[in-house]
Design a binder for these strands. Structure first.
Lengths: 143, 143
DNA sequence: TATTATATTGATAATCAAACTCAATATTAA
DNA sequence: TTAATATTGAGTTTGATTATCAATATAATA
């Protein structure tokens, strides 16, 4: 996997905020880019498997950092834990979530987005973000 | 406010599950029906204002009970606390949330719902519920 | 109505994810 | 190389919510 672009995004963000590029941040970015959705715990366990000593707090801190530079987005599906969504080379998308097996499918639908804008206009709102989650059973679970 | 219908819904649910109608449950239902969206803490404080002694745990338990009998629904907007949405005499609806003042506007849009169904069908999902939240600035805050 | 069985209550403790603390250490700039 | 500053990791703390449990209230039964 080529992570040049993502590494550049991180570096630019660090430079702009007088932050430093550390071993831990590079490692966490690398593992994160190999996933679609992870919890902080998932990532932490993955790191420990490699016999590297990185604190859980650092994982949380770095995931939040990745959110700030646009590489990740927090999601709160039905579960209580926060999922970090890898959005590094995707357009905006929403989610179908299987409540039985936990499978997550991403989708985008511009017709829905346009209707959302209409709703906002009618209510004199300026929308900055939105969240659309469809919960149900996937093909394999609904049988 | 006439709460006959809602009280009947609660009573039916209690009877069906061999649960009991208590002073506390009646009081919490009454206050809840006067609101659109509350946190458990909000309701707790409201009760203490009336100089009635009801435990916070009972407030949580009763709000969850109201969810089970279809009078309330949990919402998790940007905040960390759970909001209980009074859905006693409303159809399904979604939300516009002002990230500055916290104002919540409810809306419904059947065209969006139909498109959601199309997305689900295309992905062979059977949808049971969904969540659509539009975040932005309301008319008063966007100036 | 009195009795019995069962559910509920309230105070507090337990839980859990996530954020904070701070001395030791690593990174960057000078 | 040195100095200035940011980061780390271990552990502690936070805050919302749920669990515990003896005392009490409610409902069913006699």
């Amino acid at each position: 996997m080529n992570m040049k672009r993502e590494t550049e995004m991180l570096k630019r963000h660090l430079a702009e905020h007088r932050l430093k590029l550390t071993r831990q941040r590079q490692l966490i970015l690398e593992i994160f880019l190999g996933k679609d959705h992870v919890t902080a715990e998932d990532l932490y366990r993955e790191i420990r498997k490699r016999n590297v000593r990185v604190g859980l707090a650092t994982v949380y801190r770095t995931l939040n950092l990745l959110c700030h530079c646009g590489l990740a987005q927090q999601r709160h599906f039905s579960d209580t834990r926060t999922l970090y969504d890898n959005v590094s080379n995707k357009d905006h998308h929403d989610h179908l979530i299987c409540t039985r097996c936990g499978k997550i499918i991403e989708f985008e639908n511009s017709a829905i987005e346009r209707l959302q804008e209409m709703v906002a206009r009618k209510n004199k709102f300026a929308i900055y973000s939105h969240k659309l989650e469809l919960y149900g059973l996937c093909r394999d679970c609904k049988i």
